[in-house]
């Protein structure tokens, strides 16, 4: 019964012997050299095309530039955070409906889940931006962006949650039944807490998708990080430098999200998993 905290990598490979160690060392050197060469050529290309010229980069030293980017970042964070919360709640409801005893409710939830999951979020955004206003329902750009992103993510999350629920061993439910817990209590006290822990990594991947989805904000003219970056690009005619900076910011955001997940998984997983508490990293 004792599960182990071995990571997938530990499970796939045994401890390296002398030959493997030598091969790994050679591999490392080769990849470092290749990486160095690649970086060299990129920088050389930038130099040749004059992208390293000071005039493309100096605006980054101005406070107004960063204030504008930070405003955009704040927009991105708001959309991503609100979408994250809505999509998790909605995804949970869709999943609960789908596994409920009512055939009708279950069918409705299945159709909605598949619909949200299969439509590209951009298409949903166009729907909220172009179609719905035609019928007199006006909403601010924030919601024209947040609602479709939430819907798209909720479909995926409903499936993620369902996979988590299915992964909870049947014996857990039987034990809960045998001490007289009612159906609702079994779901809320036994199944969901365990299912959520199981799916934390997938939840986080989906949050990353949400953050990336926000970059289509320009469609509804919502000032997110990407949209503000575009403005700066046209103002300063600084395509490469601006994209470079924005890319780094997105990487940092998603890096932070991933670390949050490792922290969460570690904190809650510790309880379930194993007596050999080794570092999961």
């Amino acid at each position: 019964m004792s599960a182990q905290t071995t990571s997938m990598r530990d499970a796939l490979y045994e401890a390296p012997g002398p030959k493997t160690k030598r091969r790994t060392a050679i591999g490392t050197v080769v990849s470092l050299v290749l990486l160095g060469v690649a970086i060299f050529f990129i920088i050389r290309q930038f130099y040749i095309t004059d992208q390293l010229n000071e005039r493309y980069w100096s605006f980054l030293l101005e406070w107004t530039t960063w204030r504008f980017l930070l405003e955009g970042l704040w927009g991105t964070v708001r959309v991503a955070a609100v979408s994250g919360v809505i999509s998790m709640a909605l995804g949970l409801l869709l999943m609960l409906g789908r596994i409920s005893n009512s055939k009708v409710l279950s069918a409705i939830c299945r159709v909605l889940t598949d619909l949200f999951r299969s439509l590209p979020s951009l298409l949903l955004i166009y729907f909220f931006f172009l179609v719905i206003p035609k019928y007199g329902l006006r909403m601010p750009p924030f919601w024209m962006l947040t609602i479709p992103i939430s819907l798209a993510a909720s479909g995926v999350l409903a499936e993620v949650f369902r996979a988590g629920v299915n992964a909870v061993p049947k014996g857990q439910v039987e034990a809960a039944m045998s001490i007289g817990l009612t159906h609702g209590k079994i779901v809320w006290k036994i199944v969901l807490p365990q299912a959520l822990r199981i799916v934390i990594p997938s939840l986080v991947s989906q949050l990353v998708v949400v953050v990336k989805d926000t970059t289509v904000a320009y469609v509804v003219s919502f000032p997110d990080l990407m949209q503000n970056a575009r403005v700066l690009i046209s103002n300063y005619d600084a395509l490469v430098s601006m994209y470079f900076v924005v890319a780094i910011i997105y990487i940092l955001i998603n890096y932070a999200i991933n670390h949050l997940s490792i922290y969460l998984a570690h904190r809650s997983g510790n309880k379930i998993i194993s007596r050999e508490t080794e570092n999961p990293l």
């Binding site: 061993p169 034990a175 045998s178 001490i179």
Partner: peptide, 29 residues
């Protein structure tokens, strides 16, 4: 559910609630 509460059951694979402490396993019911 109320009937099952009157009948104890012990399984081959224990089936303790994996996310709860030993004490909470016993006090939950």
């Amino acid at each position: 559910a109320a009937y099952r509460a009157e009948i104890g059951m012990v399984f081959q694979s224990f089936n303790l609630f994996a996310h709860k402490s030993i004490l909470d396993n016993v006090t939950l019911g």
